[in-house]
Design a protein around this nucleic acid. Structure first.
Lengths: 138, 138
DNA sequence: TAGGAAAGTGCGAATCTCTCGCAATTAGTA
DNA sequence: TACTAATTGCGAGAGATTCGCACTTTCCTA
C-alpha cells in the first residue's frame, strides 16, 4: 500500500463518492450521468446527482474519463483507457456499435493535410444506419 | 400557378407559419430552433416557439430540412438541399468550418464494406481542433 | 361555394438535463 | 489533534424541448 491511489496521483482528494463514480464509469462502459448515478446508488444510495456531475467533470479534467456525444443531447462517459474505438450509432434502432479508430485513419489524415484540422474521432458518434436496419429497411 | 406548392406536394397543409419556418431555415444556413424563431418573428412577430419546433420536426419528416449536432446539446437545422458538406467543430475556439463530404468518402466506404454501416457524415459534426488553434496551442 | 373534419397554432404548464449557491462535512496536512 | 481547503448534499434555478388543450385555419366534399 505504499503507492498512492490513482486519484491522489492526479492531485484529487480521495472520497468514496469519487471512487464510486470512477468505478461505475469503468464498469458500465458507455454511461450517461444519470446511469452512473443509478449504478452508484446501488451501493451508496445517498449520493447526489450534482456530485456525480461534478465528479465526472473533475475526472475528465484529469484525463481519467472522457465524454462523447452519442445522440440527441446527453453526453455519455467512458473510462479514458477504453476510448480506443469510435461509435456507430444507428438512427433507426438506436444501437451503438464499435469500430476501431484505425478505420478513420485516412479520413483524419485527409482533414489534417487539407484543412490543418486535428480530429478527435471519438468525441462525436458516427451516425447512420446499422447493417441490420439497412437490410430490414423498406 | 398550376403546380402545387412544394409543401402540398409533401402532403402538408400550407400555413404561413410553415412557409416562414422553411424559408428561414433556407436563408439562415445553420440555425437552431431559437434562431429560426427569431428570424421568423421579424416578419411575423406572433409566431410561437412551439410552432417552430413542431414545424421543424414536420419538415424534417418529409425531408425538406435536416438537423445536425454541432456540439453540446442543441440541434441545428439546415435545408436538406444544402447538406453537402460536413462540419468541423473546433473544441477550443468553437468555430464551425466546412469541408466537402468527399473528404469522408473513403471512410464511409470502409464502414460500409467492413461493417455494413451506412454512414450519414453530416449528422454529427467532426470534432477536433482547427488549424488556427493547433498553431496557437501551447 | 358553403360546411365540416382534421390539421395546425398559440399558450401555458410540465419535463428533463444540467448548473449554481450555500452551509455542513470531510480529507489531507502540519 | 487542529486547521484549511476541497467536497458533498440539497434545493433553487436556468435552458431547451415537449405536451395538453381549446381555438383557428386549411382543404376536401357535396
Amino acid at each position: 500500500m505504499a503507492e498512492p491511489h490513482e486519484l491522489r496521483q492526479k492531485g484529487l482528494r480521495l472520497t468514496p463518492q469519487r471512487e464510486l463514480v470512477l468505478s461505475a464509469v469503468r464498469e458500465l462502459g458507455h454511461a450517461t450521468p444519470e446511469e452512473v448515478a443509478e449504478k452508484v446508488r446501488r451501493t451508496h444510495p445517498g449520493i447526489n446527482l450534482s456530485t456525480v456531475y461534478r465528479n465526472l467533470e473533475t475526472l475528465e479534467n484529469v484525463g481519467l474519463v472522457q465524454h462523447t456525444h452519442l445522440g440527441h443531447g446527453g453526453a455519455t462517459y467512458h473510462a479514458a483507457e477504453e476510448l480506443t474505438h469510435l461509435h456507430l450509432v444507428c438512427g433507426k434502432c438506436g444501437s451503438v456499435g464499435d469500430a476501431p479508430i484505425e478505420v478513420a485513419a485516412n479520413f483524419v489524415n485527409a482533414l489534417a493535410d487539407d484543412y490543418g484540422f486535428k480530429t478527435d474521432v471519438t468525441h462525436f458518434a458516427v451516425y447512420g444506419t446499422c447493417a441490420d436496419c439497412v437490410l430490414t429497411d423498406v
